[in-house]
Design a protein around this nucleic acid. Structure first.
Length: 448
RNA sequence: GACCCUAUGGUCUAGCGGUUAGGACACCUCCCUUUCACGGAGGUAGCCCGGGUUCGAUUCCCGGUAGGGUCGCCA
């Protein structure tokens, strides 16, 4: 029997990075085993549910590329869906729960208490077989010793999480429950419920949680807790996926960067770690750089234009060829697209601002005649291309008896305003002879 | 308070009784080089503590400590 796994988020208005990883692990397991990945929306708490909140989840999963075989097609609870085990919104499954509760009631396994319905929980410790953690013997806590029974239907008629979660897993034929370790203790309740329904519980695999970089627990308000923040900050989904895989799972063989295909092939439950992992932002950025470097020209262009747009700089005012050529000089140099406006903004601005520290170093009196000589050399160039520029610059340096750096630094500053950036020869070519010379001229004037 | 899980450099991790404890990020040094980045070569840094078991423990067991989770008419 092929595995059937599910991701069952509650639409709270955002998708937690830990939830995204849970979805990822489920998805990977389904793809690795040829099983089915089900998406179920746990919207029993009507008060805080909305279609927009569901869309956040769907959009997040789609951005990561985690496609679901069964589940909703839109955020509309009554809308279309894939799969024949629906509905996939808990708000649409009231009758299922009612039927199950009545069955428990009629068999004396549940009872009414102050308007609510409580499940008669067993008093003995429950053994939880877990594919990741091993066998866990869950004993009763002191409070549970007093009263182990728990509410499955509220006094207002709303069924409670433990009940609906189990009923849905049961009726949707879920074989493996892969979820956060925060559910481990509660699993005793779920197993008891399955037993009460006379059904063998699914296999459980509780995965470790993701903690903040400082080791504290990651709550909704923490930086980077929301998956959407990675999209907003210009991260590539493949980098986020790769990074998330490395948190709590190891591909072994000292591998770090893995394609999705390789990950699917290697992923399995036994290699999942048992301890929580801290979120290492620096390593994510490194992976981002790795993937950004090998992006196709088109995608690099799209991401870059988006990044410029966010700072209010509209590259559409420039010829497409110019923009593409400009961005080509940045490829492989930056990790985050958010660096781009500062890194390459000089291509698209009329007025450039000199970085003060660099100006102090490069805009010194002795560099004035050097820049003038270089300007003259450039003016004699028929073809203002990288090779010609390089030759001219090096020849000028030789004539002056200075190192090329003595010319490179002031020219870079004059034309870009920055002490570093893309290859000087290439950026000058892209900038063009007129703009380059005008900027050099301006710097010379500033040196007077 | 009770119950459950966990513990290798700052971080992510390999390790599954005998290893010079390996890799990656970050950091430092040097090389390459038009800057930066990339790439290359080095470097600093680790088995939480205490008992056992064993000829021998990072590895197995117990305890402690620390971190995380759960005990809701939240999910």
């Amino acid at each position: 029997m092929k595995p059937r796994v599910r991701f069952a988020p509650s639409p709270t208005g955002y998708l937690h990075i830990g939830g995204a990883r849970t979805a990822l692990f489920n998805w990977l397991y389904a793809r690795h085993t040829g099983g089915t990945f089900v998406l179920r929306i746990e919207d029993t708490d009507a008060a805080r549910n909305s279609q927009a909140a569901v869309d956040v989840i769907l959009d997040g999963l789609r951005w990561l590329g985690l496609d679901w075989d069964e589940g909703p097609l839109t955020g509309d609870a009554t809308g279309p869906s894939n799969g024949d085990r629906g509905p996939y919104f808990q708000s649409q499954r009231r009758e299922n729960y009612q039927r199950r509760v009545e069955a428990l009631l009629s068999r004396g396994l549940a009872y009414e208490h102050e308007g609510a319905i409580k499940f008669k929980m067993q008093r003995e410790p429950i053994l939880i077989p877990d594919l990741v953690v091993g066998e866990v013997l869950r004993k009763l806590t002191d409070r549970e010793e007093v009263d182990p029974d728990f509410v499955i239907v509220r006094s207002d008629g709303q069924p409670v999480f433990h009940l609906v979660n189990v009923v849905d897993d049961l009726e949707m034929g879920i074989t493996h429950v892969i979820r956060g370790e925060d559910h481990l203790s509660n699993t005793a309740k779920h197993i008891a419920l399955f037993n009460a329904f006379g059904v063998k519980p699914p296999h459980y695999a509780h995965i470790p949680l993701i903690l903040n970089g400082d080791g504290s627990k990651m709550s909704k308000r923490d930086q980077g807790a929301s998956l959407a923040s990675y999209l907003d900050n210009g991260f590539l989904p493949e980098a986020v996926i790769n990074f998330l895989c490395l948190l709590g799972w190891s591909p072994k063989e000292n591998r770090e960067k893995l394609s999705l295909a390789e990950t699917i092939e290697r992923f399995d439950l036994p290699q999942i770690l048992r301890h929580n992992a801290r979120f290492d932002y620096e390593k994510l950025v490194w992976l981002q750089g790795e993937y950004a470097r090998e992006l196709s020209g088109d995608r690099f262009y799209e991401c870059a234009v988006h990044a410029f747009g966010k700072t209010g700089l509209d590259t559409n005012k420039f010829p497409l060829e110019y923009v593409k050529a400009a961005l080509d000089t940045c490829k492989g140099k930056i990790k985050m697209f958010s660096e781009l406006p500062a890194y390459a903004g000089f291509y698209f601005k009329d007025e450039i601002v000199y970085e003060p520290e660099a100006a102090k170093k490069s805009f010194i009196p002795e560099n004035k005649p050097r820049l003038e000589k270089l300007r003259d050399a450039f003016s004699r160039l028929e073809k203002f291309d990288a090779a010609g520029i390089e030759t001219a610059l090096k020849a000028t340096a030789a004539e002056l008896g200075v190192k090329v750096g003595a010319l490179v630094h002031p020219v870079r500053l004059a034309t870009t305003g920055n002490p570093n950036g893309p290859s000087l020869y290439h950026l000058l070519e892209v900038l063009g002879k007129d703009k380059s010379q005008a900027r050099i001229e301006k710097a010379i004037a500033a040196l007077s």
